[in-house]
């Protein structure tokens, strides 16, 4: 039995809002990748337009976290739940910005035929999507093992990024006329790589939430 049911209900609502934010982020990264592959400028614009709702939700979560700290004097794990929600909301907001970054680059290059077939970028994106899903599951279930497994995926993301970077660099060295598009493609890979880093931060936050200890995953 809880003698602070309103407060504990407010904590659950925070959690639900983070899950909602997470699903928006997942959608943003998946749609921006689809826009890239289909060379669909309109879809890319939609991803950018949708970013507002994630920003608003993040502000809302942050506001409520502050109020709970000021008004409820949370202790122990309750306090960590609030600081974790705050932190994760910021990570998700940054991840959504990375998805927007992809969409913006797509808008710049969507009208030209691609200089190469995109193989690794969609793989990178699907690993990123998997990371968001696993991160939110780990958060919801307070599952440290899952969080660690998720952060391990960041190695794949990093390796793919290096691969993409080198491929495009080679292309540019061979044919400087591709520089414009290839740079945007490198940006896209870089956005995805950053996306993975933010996901890793979520995993670290889950470990902190459960144990109260800071642990750097995948340093």
């Amino acid at each position: 039995m809880s003698v602070r049911s309103d407060f504990h209900h407010a904590l659950e609502t925070l959690q639900q809002d983070l899950l909602r934010m997470g699903s928006y982020v997942e959608e943003a990264i998946s749609l921006s990748t689809k826009a890239l592959l289909d060379q669909d400028r309109q879809l890319a614009s939609q991803v950018i337009a949708n970013d507002d709702r994630i920003d608003r939700l993040q502000h809302d979560v942050e506001e409520r976290c502050m109020k709970l700290i000021a008004l409820q004097q949370p202790m122990a794990k309750d306090l960590r739940k609030i600081s974790s929600a705050w932190r994760i909301s910021l990570e998700l907001e940054r991840m959504a910005d990375n998805a927007c970054g992809v969409a913006k680059s797509v808008r710049r290059i969507a009208e030209q035929p691609y200089v190469k077939t995109l193989v690794n970028t969609p793989i990178m994106s699907s690993v990123c999507q998997q990371m968001v899903k696993m991160g939110l599951d780990a958060y919801l279930q307070e599952d440290i093992e899952l969080a660690i497994k998720m952060s391990d995926l960041d190695n794949q993301v990093d390796a793919l990024y290096k691969h993409i970077f080198n491929d495009l660099l080679q292309l540019m060295l061979k044919d400087p006329s591709v520089i414009n598009q290839a740079t945007q493609l490198i940006f896209i890979a870089r956005y995805l790589e950053r996306f993975g880093d933010h996901a890793t931060n979520i995993a670290e936050t889950v470990v902190y939430l459960v144990t109260g200890e800071r642990k750097e995953l995948n340093p």
């Binding site: 809880s2 202790m75 309750d78």
Partner: peptide, 19 residues
């Protein structure tokens, strides 16, 4: 005690949850 208590009963008391 108020951030990372080791005993679940302490945690329950200070966060207002009684098992």
């Amino acid at each position: 005690i108020f951030t990372t208590p080791k005993d679940q009963r302490t945690e329950d008391y200070i966060t207002g949850r009684f098992g």
